[in-house]
Write a protein that binds this DNA or RNA. Structure first.
Lengths: 343, 343
DNA sequence: GGGCCTCATGTATGCGCATTCATCATACAT
DNA sequence: ATGTATGATGAATGCGCATACATGAGGCCC
């Protein structure tokens, strides 16, 4: 008996069960399988049962690539953050992802580093996947980034900073204002000397600048400013205070750091030197990290609700996708100064 | 003059420039545009120039969904980790992502939480995107997870744990062995009492168990074991030591924590109580986090090269994708005990 | 000068699904 | 009995691209 190569008619060489296959097994057409999956109420109970069995038997997994191509909806949402190892961004993206997942979307997450050019290139790669929406970090982008976004016609949300004129939507807070608020605190506490320790991006610099401006405006001495390009670290904070004390003539006063981890380093270095915190050295951080209220003394800091940013960003995009939003949206979620033991 | 609705022939309603459009503008067919993009050497220099111009003029962005469907290669790689806000996993995934990106892949990252069921469900969603490879955290998975993976026929790497019999490939280390090594250290240092503080998954428990086994085998007293389900935190570490001292009869000795953050909490609590570290209380952490060598005293810990795991996992998948790998691979990257000031 | 290769390009096809429109049965109202 | 709504299904189509195969022009050899 001759066995034709290929076996059954229209045998499919490539691995992978299709709706066609499931349908054949269930005695219905491909469309009906599609309907059973997207809206079970549209098929009769009996048919639905046979299809479900066939799916179970074959181990069918729908091909979302094909579905996305046909429906022009990918179910993908792009999220671009400077770094995923920075808890600030990680927790924001986590909250964002949870909300988007509940809405049926998957997150295509990438790091962009610190340059706008890297962001642009990464975005281009992402857009080829035809995401249904985009989350970007910050409000500064290259011209081509803006052009691509506008051309794509999908909802965009810029987070972790604030502008009245976003590309589409914006969820964040005013960085300079946080610095000014800490400057006021320093002045209120009667400090005469102050310093800033900054290890971060342009937004961190704006916080430091806001602090310096307000502190001197309130009568403080010129602020000693220390910045470096490394990632923020405990060791960096320790080294910074050492340098402030040993080389820059800093004597006593308040140190405003661009992150809590730096502030913690300053705290440790001060204590290692036998200085009293906050009497000799007061320190204020930024970010209200998880550890900040458990140090000894606890670290005074600027609290921003990162999870709230993520959730609000998700809502902004979802309302944009569903056409519920009529125009741009700019949401300032603000911040809180948390005065604890270190200042 | 009558203008037919639709304008040009075959006008495309949906937004979006296609290769067809680019080709028309450049005076070539769609295939030639495709070739120009995937292998520029295949088209003549003159044609290439015209196509490049047309792409520039139209702002064409290739549709990777269609490309993936046609080529049966998505260029996507799934990465499933328990949590992205845990620096342990974040830094591993970061290194993994960098390597995969260089190889032309994009990462589809999701959190699975702590249950295998959640992992299974997330994996199913991911597989519908037809990833070219999968990274999973841990070596324990549901039966259906294994079945789906096997059926998909793509390379799989399990990281952050070790087994001789992986689904496909495995890159990690022996958790129990790290605990035993710390148990040896405690015994070598002459400790008689010891305790463990554990806040984590099943792997953390295995580390603690390894410690307890080895410490008692070496002559130590029965190990006091403290575990809780919250995420590891400084506050948790402080509370743990407080409980050990106040309620469990722990007097002096070595405390092995499932993470450096807990160890740091123990350190802070000990110092807040006026206890000397390491003379009264010695503490050992796990993970060698960035801050661990900058505390005072610096924290002794178990170092594992997370970035190396990420890179090795990427290599394992890439070799699998390219068919360079003939069979399963199990790589034990080991660990190092870092003895610093706290023990 | 006919065969044969190479290079550049085009035609045809289908990836697996969602969508639109058509079909057919049944139920119900007039 | 005729018309009309409703529900369940199928046939046809195309999303935008990659791939296999076909074509034609030019160059080279004996």
């Amino acid at each position: 008996m001759h066995i034709p190569d290929g076996g059954e008619p229209k045998s499919r060489r490539g691995r992978g069960v299709t709706m066609q296959d499931v349908g054949r097994m269930a005695g219905v057409s491909q469309v009906t399988v599609s309907r059973a999956l997207s809206d079970p109420a549209k098929v009769s109970p009996d048919t639905l049962r046979r299809i479900t069995q066939a799916i179970e038997a074959t181990g069918f997994v729908p091909n979302a690539l094909a579905g996305a191509l046909a429906s022009r909806r990918s179910g993908l949402v792009t999220a671009l953050v400077p770094s995923i190892t920075n808890i600030i961004y990680a927790s924001m993206v986590q909250a964002f992802g949870l909300r988007m997942r509940d809405a049926g979307y998957q997150i295509l997450l990438s790091e962009t580093g610190l340059t706008l050019e890297a962001e642009e290139e990464t975005l281009a790669r992402h857009l080829s996947r035809r995401p249904d929406a985009v989350l970007l970090t910050g409000i500064h982008h290259t011209a081509r980034t803006r052009r691509m976004l506008l051309a794509s016609g999908i909802p965009v949300v810029e987070v972790w900073d604030f502008t009245e004129t976003p590309i589409d939507a914006c969820v964040g807070f005013d960085h300079a204002a946080t610095g000014r608020a800490v400057g006021d605190l320093a002045a209120d506490l009667g400090h005469v000397q102050a310093a800033t320790v900054c290890a971060g991006d342009e937004r961190a610099k704006r916080r430091m600048a806001g602090f310096a401006t307000q502190f001197t405006r309130r009568g403080g001495q010129a602020v000693l400013e220390l910045g470096y390009d490394d990632q923020a670290s405990l060791a960096g904070g320790r080294a910074a205070l050492a340098r402030l004390l040993d080389e820059m003539g800093f004597d006593r006063g308040l140190v405003f750091c661009s992150s809590d981890i730096l502030a913690h380093g300053v705290l440790i270095e001060a204590q290692a030197r036998g200085l009293r915190v906050p009497q000799d050295i007061a320190v204020v951080g930024f970010g209200d990290q998880e550890f900040s209220d458990a140090t000894n003394p606890p670290i005074s800091t600027v609290h921003v609700d990162r999870e709230a940013f993520g959730r609000a960003a998700a809502e902004a995009l979802l309302s944009g996708i569903e056409g519920r939003r009529d125009g741009p949206a700019a949401i300032d979620l603000g911040f809180r100064i948390l005065r604890r033991g270190s200042a």
